Amino acid sequence: MEPGRRLAGLLASAAAAIWTAGAALAQDYTFKLHHFLPATSPTQTETLDPWARAVEARSGGRVRIEIYPSMTLGGRPPELVTQARDGVVDLIWVVNGYTPGLFPRTEVMELPNVYVNDPGAANLALADLFETDLKDDYKGLEVMFLHVHAGNGIALRGPEVHAPADLAGRKMRIPSRTGAWVLEALGAVPVAMPVPDLPQALQKGVVDGALVPFEIVPALKLQDQTDRLIEGDRNTRFGTTTFQLSMNKARWDSLPPEIQTAFREASGPEWLAELGRIWRGTEETGVAITTAAGKAHQVLSPAETEAFRTALEPVVDRWIEDADSRGIDGAGLVARARAAVAAHSSR
C-alpha cells in the first residue's frame, strides 16, 4: 500500500474510534432489559426492540437499552419481578401471572368476557385504569406500560372441540391463576408452567394442550407438537394474559425529567394502540404456520362460542369474590374495566 493511502486509512480508523467513543460518552444512561422469550420471538423483534429504539431516539441518544432475552442474566421467569424490584436489572418484560397474587387488581383484564378479542382496546383500558385502580399492585416498580396479548386460544392434540365438555379431563398448560380458573370451568386439568417449558411438556405427554396466543407458535414450533388451534367466532378468546414492562423504582426516581419524558412519550396511547395491532397481526402468522404444516385452525360457530361464554361467566364471579376477600371492589372494577374496553373498542 502507498504511504499516503496507508496514512489516510489510519486517520479514518482513528476518526471512527473517536466518533465511537464520543457516541458512547453521549449515552449517559444504559439500561438492561431482561425477559424470558427468545431473541427471535415477535415479542422482541416487534415489541421490545421498537420500543427501546423509540426511547433512545426520544432521548436524543442519551439512553441505551440493552435487551437480554431467554433469561440470559440468570434466574427463572417467575423471578423477573423480584430482579427488577431488587435492582438486579433495570427493566423487565414479564407475564404478571408468573408471580401469582402480586398483581390482583390487574387480573381483571385477563378475565373471559371482560377481555374478548381486542388487545388495543384492552391496552388503552389498562392505561385508563392504572392511576385510579391498578397502581397499588406495583410497589417497588415504575410501570412503563401494561398490555395484553391477542387472547388465550387453545393449542391442542386430539380431535375437534365443539363444546366445553370436549375438554373434560384434558391436561392443559396455563399462564396464570385466572387461566387455571378458565380451564377448571371447562372441566380441563390446569398445569402451570412458563411458556418456554411447553414444547417439552407436550413431547413428554405432561400436557395435551395449552391456553396460548397463536403468535407463540413459530417461536416454540407448536405446529410440530399439536394438531389444532381453536378460537371462538370473530376471534373471541378465552380470556387473556397481562404483561408489564417495568423499571426498578429507585432507578426511575434517579433519572432527570427529560429522560423520564423520553420513556413516557415512547409508552403513550399511540404505542399502546399500535401494540394491539402488532399482537393481532402476529396471530395471523401463527395460524398461517400451523395450517401450512397441515394442522387445523378451528373456529367455533356463534352458538358454540356462546356456550363457552356461558360456561366461563362463573370465572368472573369467582374473581369478584376473591377480590372482595382482599379488600378490592371486585364488581366495581369489573364494571369499570368493561366500560373502559367498550369505550376504546368503539373508536
Score class of each variant (00 low, 15 high):
Arg105Gln: 01
Asn96Ser: 02
Asn96His: 12
Arg85Tyr: 06
Lys135Glu: 15
Arg76Glu: 14
Pro78Gln: 04
Ser176Met: 03
Pro100Ala: 10
Val108Arg: 01
Gly151Lys: 11
Gly101Leu: 09
Pro194Glu: 11
Gly187Ser: 10
Gly120Asp: 03
Asp136His: 08
Asp128Leu: 02
Pro100Cys: 05
Gly87Lys: 07
Leu167Tyr: 09
Val114Cys: 04
Ala168Gly: 00
Pro78Ile: 07
Ala192Lys: 00
Met144His: 05
Arg170Trp: 01
Trp181Leu: 13
Lys171Tyr: 01
Gly151Trp: 08
Leu186Lys: 01
Gly74Met: 14
Val94Cys: 11
Gly140Gln: 13
Ala163Cys: 10
Tyr98Ala: 03
Gly179Pro: 09
Asp166Leu: 07
Pro159His: 13
Ala155Ser: 14
Tyr68Cys: 02
Pro78Asp: 11
Asn113Gly: 12
Gly140Pro: 02
Leu129Lys: 06
Tyr98Gln: 12
Asp137Glu: 14
His149Val: 12
Gly74Ser: 10
Asp136Leu: 12
Gly87Ser: 12
Pro159Thr: 01
His149Cys: 06
Gly74Gln: 13
Val94Tyr: 12
Thr132Asp: 15
Asp118Asn: 15
Asn96Ile: 01
Ile92Tyr: 13
Ala150Ile: 12
Asp128Cys: 00
Pro175Lys: 09
Glu142Ser: 10
Thr72Leu: 13
Trp93Val: 08
Pro194Ile: 09
Gln83Phe: 14
Gly75Asp: 00
Asn123Arg: 10
Ala127Gln: 15
Gly187Met: 06
Glu110Asp: 04
Glu184Arg: 14
Asp166Tyr: 10
Val143Leu: 08
